[in-house]
């Protein structure tokens, strides 16, 4: 999901509010199809993909969550909300939910914060010099796969510089074995992977602020930090709001690969997030019903978070 979105989407919500009146005054420009089925034919591939890869699995998950599946494939029994009760009631689930919340807050906070910091610094350098901009934006194109790989190497037990750095201070860092070390590495690599993404969006947001508004602010406010906080940052709010949703989704779901690499085939006492537990219980533990219930819970959480964000945050976010 993250990769499909283009930087300009940050301001994508803007035209909505104004769209109503001009559209009404001029005659609707509607493409006329002779055959009413043609538009559906155009839509079909997309709809098919959405149905097969999104709606159908969702329906499957919801149905399965009410059944207890026999681990050996001999039928299933309807158990109502038992799977949900089991999941929510288990201490392990609660512990992992707690870690997931912490993980999400830290990953979102740090990757957005660092992305913003770098964007502000880069913006100072490249203002009006497009060659720099191209160079910096290409970071985005190469970063995600390379960053992930490099991130893992940073914590490699033998060659990882972070492990060596810790060793200098007399600390024996054991990623994949020690709970806190793993958590630290997991967060750091997840942040590391996401920073370029946020950086690009913040940078393009900053570049979108008119030079004269900045100059007016330079005349109105001497203190650079106050100026940034009161005159520039609020103008980045639409970008930040968009990124907040993307980053939370990223932290909850797209970090799966990072976690998998760090904890796969390692002793049990490692931090994982809810999405990893869904996978673990379903595919390793063969508890299809329980896993389905957990994924439905996760779906609901994301839905609620997104609704809250749109309802409360968007109101305070200034567009245009």
């Amino acid at each position: 999901m993250t990769d499909a979105t283009h930087p300009t989407a940050a301001s994508g919500a803007r035209p909505r509010r104004r769209a109503a009146s001009p559209a009404r005054s001029e005659p609707a420009k509607r493409a006329q199809f002779d055959r009413p089925l043609l538009p559906w034919a155009f839509l079909a591939p997309q709809l098919l993909v959405v149905c097969i890869f999104f709606y159908w699995p969702s329906v499957q998950a919801i149905t399965s969550s009410f059944y207890l599946e026999d681990p050996f494939g001999f039928g299933s029994t309807f158990v109502g909300l038992d799977n949900y009760k089991d999941a929510l009631g288990s201490a392990e689930y609660q512990r992992i939910a707690g870690f997931t919340a912490l993980f999400t807050v830290l990953v979102t906070g740090f990757s957005m914060g660092l992305g913003l910091l770098f964007a502000v610094k880069a913006d100072k350098v490249i203002r009006g010099r497009s060659s720099y901009r191209t160079a910096l934006i290409s970071v985005y194109a190469i970063a995600p796969p390379v960053a992930g790989l490099m991130g893992m190497m940073l914590f490699d037990q033998h060659i990882g510089p972070f492990v060596k750095l810790a060793a200098w201070f007399g600390y024996d860092m054991k990623v994949g074995i020690n709970y806190n070390d793993t958590a630290f590495a997991m967060i750091l690599v997840s942040v590391w992977k996401q920073v370029p993404y946020n950086f690009i969006f913040f940078l393009s947001g900053l570049q979108g602020i008119p030079a004269s508004v900045r100059e007016a602010a330079v005349i109105d406010c001497r203190n650079g930090f106050t100026r940034f906080r009161t005159a520039i940052l609020p103008l980045l709010a639409p970008t930040a709001f968009f990124l907040l949703i993307i980053n939370i989704t990223y932290a909850l779901f797209d970090t799966f690969a990072v976690i998998d690499v760090m904890v796969k085939d390692k002793p049990a006492n490692n931090p994982v997030t809810l999405v990893y537990k869904v996978y673990n219980d379903g595919f390793r533990g063969n508890d299809i019903g329980g896993s389905a219930a957990q994924s439905v819970i996760l779906m609901v959480v994301v839905l609620v978070l997104t609704l809250i964000q749109f309802r409360w945050l968007e109101r305070r976010v200034h567009y245009g």
Binding site: P210, S212, V213, E215, A216, A217, V218, I219, D220, C221, R222, A231, P234, L235, A237, H318, G320
Partner: peptide, 18 residues
């Protein structure tokens, strides 16, 4: 600029939109 005791009016107004 903030200490020069001047005020400037810009062509595109440069109002703070928020």
């Amino acid at each position: 600029p903030a200490e020069r005791d001047i005020a400037m009016v810009f062509q595109n107004y440069a109002l703070y939109p928020h």
